[in-house]
Amino acid sequence: MTDIFEPEIVAFCCHYCAYTAADMAGSKRISYPPNVKIIRVPCTGKVDAIHIMKALEKGADGVYVAGCLEGDCHFKTGNLRAAQRVRRVKALLEEIGFDSRRVEMILMSAGMGERFAQTAREFTEKIRELGPNPIRSAIQEQARRAAG
């Protein structure tokens, strides 16, 4: 076992912007931390509160939703809805004493490869500072018991 904490981050990325931006970062060989696991969604409006919660409940150290710039949503206002949901999840997390900084909404356009990489780096660093998801050890404990 190693003592170095490597955050696990889930990024829900809109197909029309952030996902394409990630692609661009890749093709331009702009590196970003491998901690960020991308889940492509057709629109961030498709990301439900439960998706974010489940990611955290299963042990993700941070979750962000990356959608289009304001006014650029392919489905008109999916990104705004996602932002509202993120706010709601953050409030719920605060209610259960869970640091809501582990969840963020981020906006970008398809052409922002550099921004995608930078966001991934910054968010990873922020989570690294916050430390592991506090329920991680409980989950590991559970897994150990399940394994007998």
Partner: peptide, 15 residues
């Protein structure tokens, strides 16, 4: 589902 998840997380956090 949301409440279930939030409760689960709360109690997990407390071990």
């Amino acid at each position: 589902a949301l409440l279930s998840s939030a409760l689960q997380m709360h109690f997990l956090k407390q071990g």
